[in-house]
Amino acid sequence: MSFVLACPHCGPRPVDEFAYSGEVTRRPQSSPTLRELTDYVYFRDNVAGRQREWWQHRQGCGEWFLAERDTRTNEIISVSLPKPGT
């Protein structure tokens, strides 16, 4: 068990209940160059610091949400529900 993550609906739960889906990326809008595409598919900021990332409360309510976490300390700064289409 590692750090505790607060699900927007269920509250604080051990991180093992959640699925992690990586840092928030920007999908190219239309027919990107190969370079733009591979940058989106493979390359990551991988910051040591505050990172916006996707989580799903897989073992609980099932919601996908966004968290802002400091990757140096695993401190969760905030969680929020996604605003689709943005």
């Binding site: 068990m1 269920c10 509250g11 739960r13 209940e17 897989r58 073992q59 609980g60």
Partner: peptide
């Protein structure tokens, strides 16, 4: 389960499943 028995009903980890 590690769930808080005082905070039910809820969904969560139970016997290594959900």
């Amino acid at each position: 389960t590690d769930l808080d028995p005082g905070a039910l009903p809820t969904a969560g980890g139970f016997a290594r499943i959900s």
